[in-house]
Design a protein around this nucleic acid. Structure first.
Lengths: 133, 133
DNA sequence: CTCTGTGCAAAGCGTTTGCAAACGA
DNA sequence: TCGTTTGCAAACGCTTTGCACAGAG
């Protein structure tokens, strides 16, 4: 398991045990909602406050250390920032996974056709995963 | 301007003046947040309640008469349900527009590669629109 | 030692609910 | 007329804020 102490510091965040736990959990889960994150955190820090979770998530978002993923019909989840990618989400079990899709062709088409300078593409494919099918 | 009386009734919704106004506004604006919808509605119905807005929006969502569009870094907006499409959103002025992109190739690739049955694709391209550039 | 981060309690906001009166069909 | 919808007020749930103490560097 990666140690995020230096990564946190390089983002001007002190490496507190709570923050290290958050990053570990994000790393392990891939995607997690505030509520689930709190449920996992409280097992390790019995007196942690939701305020601490929110303050840290917001700080990490401002830093682009993590990113927000808004999902249809589900709570927003958070993930460690990595290369640009898309998501698949299972409507049955709620599973969320990263997928790598080349959207360049689409981005280029839209840029010229709509005269719109695309800087980011957020794509969520929803449906039924192999386990639920 | 289209009259939504019958459309509302076919969705088992009584055609009240408030609902007709909501549909007209959705039609005229394309995409609108709850807050903006309320701001527009109150000009026509000085004593309308936010509760009425929420109740109607939720009913219309349940009916698939309208749809929710979750946007990065912006409030969720609502639109009348139409053919499947994607969105472009300007980070400067907040403009949201529909675009038609063929995502079939992507959907097929993901279906086979990930063994995932895709039923819906939500794509938002963000960037800078021609007016803001 | 200094400044940042944590936990608590309270406040803030957006959204939902219950209810009586008004209204659509 | 009957069942639905509206508007109001209160309740709710999630998120943020202020503050004193604890902890990282």
């Amino acid at each position: 398991m990666k140690n995020y102490t230096d990564t946190l510091r390089s983002h001007n965040l002190k490496a507190t045990p709570q923050r290290l736990a958050i990053t570990d959990i994000l790393y392990a889960h891939g995607h997690i909602s505030i509520e689930s994150l709190y449920d996992v955190m409280i097992k390790k820090f019995s007196s942690i406050s939701l305020a601490t979770i929110y303050k840290n998530i917001n700080l990490m978002l401002e830093n682009s250390f993590i990113q927000e993923v808004k999902l249809p019909n589900q709570k927003t989840v958070y993930e460690l920032t990595k290369h640009s990618h898309s998501h698949i989400m299972c409507d049955r079990c709620g599973m969320v996974n990263d997928i790598t899709i080349d959207l360049n062709a689409i981005v280029n088409t839209v840029s010229t056709l709509e005269n719109f300078e695309v800087s980011k593409a957020d794509l969520v494919l929803s449906g039924v995963c192999k386990n639920c099918a």
